[in-house]
Design a protein around this nucleic acid. Structure first.
Lengths: 196, 196
DNA sequence: TGTACATCAGTGAACGCGCGTTCACTGATGTAC
DNA sequence: TGTACATCAGTGAACGCGCGTTCACTGATGTAC
């Protein structure tokens, strides 16, 4: 890798590579997207990649950290700026947005979760971001019960995994809507067995 | 691929390949496990693979269908042989078993979900098995509410995804336990359930 | 201001390794007589 | 029962393609004077 100073143009290119890689990795998986495809999406040729990243693995690490830290920062801000109920709605609703899931701009946990569990690298940064997301969710729970935040996150992640897996668009949407209804009881008060 | 009759010995070998592939694919992902590794795990050399399967893709399809249909049949039987509450416990408890998750013998949805969404093939069979699993879960819900079954499945899948992603064993177990507590509100006893 | 030179981001051909796949062959099992 | 032959499951060397990686080169940008 060439080791040169940072430069406006260089930084912009690097950011474009990161953005496109983030989108493509979430859509087709780390192993399903080559360096070639990432660079092409960024409007470049594959050879230039190594002027920005030491290896594909380094790109994967960077993408994972960036996306998770961004998600954590977002949830953290929301959970501090709003009251419990509204904060939860502002976290859950966009998370379960069907368009976002389809476009590959959703949370990295459902789409890259299994990939990251395997390409295990920089797991420390991943763990820190995960802890932050849990802390933000806990702030949204009645009584700040962490256990309930863990379950909420599980439901969110599982719903997106299953929505992506479902061939039938109706079933796909049903998973997302069911999760939203269950996690935001204010919208639909039918949910009976919510443990206090 | 050689096209010969079925034979006891042939069938046993084929089954061994399927079993090992199922375990390895769930542990390390479809792209993380080569034909070589699968055959080695089955006590054979890689060359013989194509006497049993037309291609690696064919093996992936077969493994996915087999595992999902087995899970569906298991849930279906449980949901018909027990009352609602106990059936749910017999489904949820082994699903969230930490040892099973670690050993790669858990449900294929969390581990292969994203893989299958990408290697999209035989999605029809996958969809059918998924429908069956939802139907079985619905039978366990008060009022047989399908929406609640969808959420339950999301929570189960998400908890396993997150447990596998977590570096910290304590956090990993916390995801599984939180989901179990949330999905089995009344019952506390750890009923030893039958294997799939 | 224009010219000469240095530096830089990006190009694209080429390399090499891994992995899916093929195939000629082998040792074992089963069968006919 | 033993011998000869056919069939089979599995072996392991080899092939070829894809993809990560390297590198000599190019055109553009910036700087010195």
């Amino acid at each position: 890798m060439r080791t040169t100073e940072a430069t406006p143009r260089r930084d912009a290119t690097r950011q474009r590579i990161l953005d496109e890689a983030g989108r493509l990795f979430r859509q087709d998986g780390v192993d399903g997207v080559g360096v070639d495809a990432v660079m092409k999406a960024a409007g470049l040729t594959h050879g230039g990649f190594y002027a920005h990243f030491a290896s594909k693995q380094a790109l994967v690490d960077q993408v994972a950290c960036t996306l998770l830290q961004r998600a954590e920062a977002n949830w953290d801000a929301i959970s501090r700026q709003h009251d419990r109920t509204q904060a939860l709605a502002r976290i859950v609703t966009p998370y379960l947005d069907a368009d976002r899931v389809a476009a590959g701009t959703c949370c990295p946990l459902p789409t890259l979760g299994t990939d990251l569990a395997r390409h295990a690298s920089s797991r420390q940064a991943i763990g820190a971001a995960l802890d932050g997301m849990i802390a933000a969710l806990t702030r949204c729970m009645p009584g700040r019960r962490r256990q309930r935040a863990l379950t909420t996150l599980s439901t969110l992640v599982g719903a997106v995994v299953l929505a992506r897996l479902s061939d039938d668009p109706a079933l796909s949407k049903a998973f997302l809507d069911a999760a939203a209804d269950s996690l935001l009881p204010a919208v639909k008060p039918a949910s009976s067995a919510a443990p206090p």
